[in-house]
Simulated assay, not measured.
Amino acid sequence: MTELDEVDRRRGRPWLVVALSAVAIAAVTTAGVLGWEVRGQRAVADAERQAMAAAQQYAVILTRVDAATLDLNFAAVLDGATGEFKDMYSQSSSHLRQALVDNNAHADGTVIAAGIRSATADTVEVMLFVDQSVTNASNPQPRLDRNRIVITMQKIDGRWLASDVDML
């Protein structure tokens, strides 16, 4: 091997090092991006699971009415609410109170089915099918109401709270 061949061989090595470095950087970057995406998907899946459970419990609370324990009913609804929905419910419950007491209203809801409508890591929209048995002074025989409810759940300070409720 001549001295010129040795110089040519050394010149080729920096290109090889650069090429291998580029491949290594691309591999690490791709792994990082994929890991970040998987982490994001896990966060949304966890949010869906937690918000679904919270929304089902909240739907039962929301559809439960007992004229004898209205203060407890209203307090439970407000405890699971946030934002404009909480404000609206707080204002409307004071108007509704007397009608429920006068009519000796009673209702119990049961979640029949639920599904996720949309989700991010901190906001989940849950659609629920709720059967509600309703009685009152003028109708002592239970009447079954079949409700579709969409509850938007938001994670606030580690709790899933209802920020919007739509009865369809």
Rank of each mutant, 00 (worst) to 15 (best):
V65K: 06
M1V: 00
L96K: 10
F129W: 07
A119H: 01
P142T: 09
L62M: 09
L20M: 13
V60N: 11
R64K: 12
V33L: 15
D145F: 13
M88K: 12
A24H: 00
V60H: 06
A27G: 14
D5T: 09
V111G: 05
Q50G: 05
A53V: 07
A47K: 00
I149H: 01
G83F: 06
V101W: 12
M167R: 06
V44I: 15
T120Y: 04
I112R: 09
R49P: 00
V101L: 15
D122R: 07
I116S: 10
V150Y: 01
S93R: 14
A47S: 02
I156T: 13
T29H: 02
V101N: 09
M153H: 02
R10N: 01
S138L: 09
V165Y: 03
A54G: 04
M127K: 01
A137L: 10
D102W: 07
D46T: 15
R159P: 02
Q98G: 08
N147L: 15
I116H: 03
I156R: 14
L62S: 11
Q98E: 07
I149G: 01
T2L: 01
K155I: 04
V38E: 07
R39K: 12
E84S: 12
A59P: 11
S138I: 08
L100Q: 08
I61W: 14
G83K: 09
S118T: 05
V130P: 12
E125C: 04
Q91R: 12
N147I: 02
Q57C: 04
G115F: 00
R146Y: 12
D102L: 10
V33F: 08
E37C: 02
R49V: 01
L16S: 09
Q154V: 10
M127E: 06
D8A: 06
I112G: 04
R146D: 03
D108H: 04
A43V: 01
R148T: 14
V111I: 03
L34D: 03
D66S: 11
N103V: 01
R159N: 13
R49L: 02
V17I: 15
V77Y: 13
V17P: 08
M1T: 05
W36M: 03
G109I: 12
A75T: 12
Y89R: 00
V65A: 13
G80Y: 11
G83V: 07
L34G: 03
L20Q: 11
A137Y: 03
N104E: 14
V126Q: 00
D87T: 12
R64N: 11
T30C: 05
A67S: 14
Q132H: 13
A54T: 02
W160A: 06
A76V: 02
A45C: 05
V111Q: 05
V7C: 00
Q50H: 00
M1N: 09
V60K: 14
F74S: 12
P142C: 05
G115R: 12
L72V: 14
Q141S: 14
T82W: 02
E3S: 11
V23H: 08
G12H: 04
E48R: 07
V101H: 11
T123Q: 13
K155L: 06
V77F: 15
M1A: 11
L96F: 11
A113P: 05
R148C: 07
I149E: 13
A107Y: 08
I156C: 01
R13S: 01
K86F: 02
S93K: 13
L128S: 09
P14T: 08
L96C: 07
A99H: 08
T82D: 10
K155A: 05
M88Y: 06
I112V: 15
D102A: 09
S133T: 05
L78Q: 15
V65G: 03
